[in-house]
Lab assay of single mutants.
Amino acid sequence: KAKLLVLLYAFVATDADTICIGYHANNSTDTVDTILEKNVAVTHSVNLLEDSHNGKLCKLKGIAPLQLGKCNITGWLLGNPECDSLLPARSWSYIVETPNSENGACYPGDLIDYEELREQLSSVSSLERFEIFPKESSWPNHTFNGVTVSCSHRGKSSFYRNLLWLTKKGDSYPKLTNSYVNNKGKEVLVLWGVHHPSSSDEQQSLYSNGNAYVSVASSNYNRRFTPEIAARPKVRDQHGRMNYYWTLLEPGDTIIFEATGNLIAPWYAFALSRGFESGIITSNASMHECNTKCQTPQGAINSNLPFQNIHPVTIGECPKYVRSTKLRMVTGLRNIPSIQYRGLFGAIAGFIEGGWTGMIDGWYGYHHQNEQGSGYAADQKSTQNAINGITNKVNSVIEKMNTQFTAVGKEFNNLEKRMENLNKKVDDGFLDIWTYNAELLVLLENERTLDFHDLNVKNLYEKVKSQLKNNAKEIGNGCFEFYHKCDNECMESVRNGTYDYPKYSEESKLNR
């Protein structure tokens, strides 16, 4: 008799109507990190870190770059004969040098303040090359056809396309004075040089004057150069050297050249137009028929994500570079809930034993079982409120962090190594801060989002509990077992918050 009662009780308990509160689960393989956990499985997430590029040089917003090819900045601007293909260059979106560009200054020497000139050019998007001192009329008392084997072109001695090597005419090199007034309405880049012979005999042979000088002056520039005559090792078949100089001439300003020898005179100059998204990159990537809004030396990035880990040097509207390998923000729920887990921000989770793959029309909802059958029903209101809140948060985070910009490298010469090392340390410090901030932001927001979901499920549970009161009992896994019969209409009233407690209280009292 006792065995019969136990079996009867078990049958009745199993047959009781139930309603459970749960949440969506799926077959997603997404994982995120939080402050407290690593690799948390979630139903949905968004990636904030771009880690792919196309490996190509592309047009930037429809404008092609200027590819210097086998030449570098120095060779292009001075007019190395091997860089003749660059003479027609007028406009570009950015400038590309190759790491091993070999054609710079063909006659050995240095372009002074080269690093600063590169910085200036990094904001130039177009130029006009014009004859600042016409070759045939500007130097009537001097020979202007100086050439050298060091600047050979097609097997013949030649010289820079933008400079003139002035030497004596006959047996004399009379003092020369020439000036140019900038009437271009924009900055003009003027380049010139000073020749330093290897011996007094060479000085006399070329310029006749043993104590020659070169003077260059404008409103913002004033220097006097004296040739340094000295024996030097042979470089590119030359014992002599040429140093090259430049200045930016403001609109309306005048530049005056005065010399008694050794002047490498300007022939062509450049009127410059600035462009905020221009820059110089060093890259071996090849040019393709493609378009982008962000270019790196590795390749083009076409992404609206706020961060990238491809390269710190970028041109155009680019994500911020960070050292992170993963920045994924959760938008959905835990896919593998932890039992009795309390989140960092106070939300209680884990009283549900598992997510439901059968509930596909919402994030949170119900599963019921009664004599009429069983089924899932999503709670659309709480789901939609959660979707709206999380979507707004993700968009806000992306908008705040998605300050796209150009980031170019800084140039230092060989004598500025300590400054370069200090600059690298400062840049590394800023990069570490950006990386830390980005990672911390994602970790915190992921923790908040998961706790937010847990709290929403808990609130749904409490909503049902407050309606049923003692007409049902909690069975410990997020479910309630009714003390009365609850048909589909009754189940719907529980879900929509209109459950009639008094209607079922007498039946429940008897069954309790």
Rank of each mutant, 00 (worst) to 15 (best):
S200Q: 14
E136G: 12
N262C: 04
E115R: 01
E119A: 08
P140Y: 07
E50C: 08
V12P: 06
N162T: 12
L49K: 08
A230I: 10
N141A: 03
P251W: 02
K70W: 07
L87A: 09
L166D: 01
E37T: 06
Y160W: 11
I19D: 10
G252E: 15
K186H: 06
H196E: 08
E128S: 13
D237V: 02
P99A: 14
K3N: 07
V12E: 15
T143M: 06
S208L: 11
I73M: 13
I256Q: 12
R90D: 06
V188M: 11
G109V: 08
K3Q: 12
E202L: 08
C20Y: 02
G146A: 12
E50N: 02
E131P: 15
Y173M: 11
E128F: 04
G185I: 00
I132C: 09
Q67F: 11
N209D: 05
A231M: 14
L48C: 09
K184F: 15
I280T: 05
G279E: 05
G185L: 13
S205Y: 11
F270Q: 03
Y9G: 01
Y114L: 14
N141W: 09
T31L: 13
W76Y: 09
L263S: 01
W139C: 06
Y244P: 07
P251S: 11
Y221I: 14
S52F: 12
T167L: 15
Q67E: 12
Q238E: 02
G210L: 13
S101K: 00
T282D: 04
L60E: 10
S91M: 15
N222I: 13
E228L: 09
L164N: 10
Y180E: 03
E228D: 07
V46Y: 15
E187M: 10
D201R: 02
E258G: 10
G279H: 07
P266F: 11
I256C: 10
K61D: 13
T247N: 04
I256K: 14
G146K: 13
G109D: 05
N47P: 10
L111V: 11
A259R: 00
D15P: 00
G109C: 11
N262M: 03
K38H: 10
V194A: 11
K38E: 09
P251Y: 00
V147K: 14
R223S: 09
V190Y: 06
A64L: 09
N47G: 00
K38W: 04
L36Y: 10
L87P: 01
G146F: 08
N26G: 07
L49T: 03
L66Y: 11
S218M: 09
L66H: 12
Y9T: 09
Y245C: 07
R241Q: 09
D171R: 01
N222F: 15
D17T: 02
P197M: 10
L263Y: 13
I255T: 00
H195F: 07
Y221F: 15
R236V: 00
P227Y: 09
R90L: 12
L272N: 00
D253S: 14
T148F: 00
Y94N: 02
Y221D: 05
K38Q: 04
R232S: 02
L191Y: 08
L206Q: 04
C83M: 08
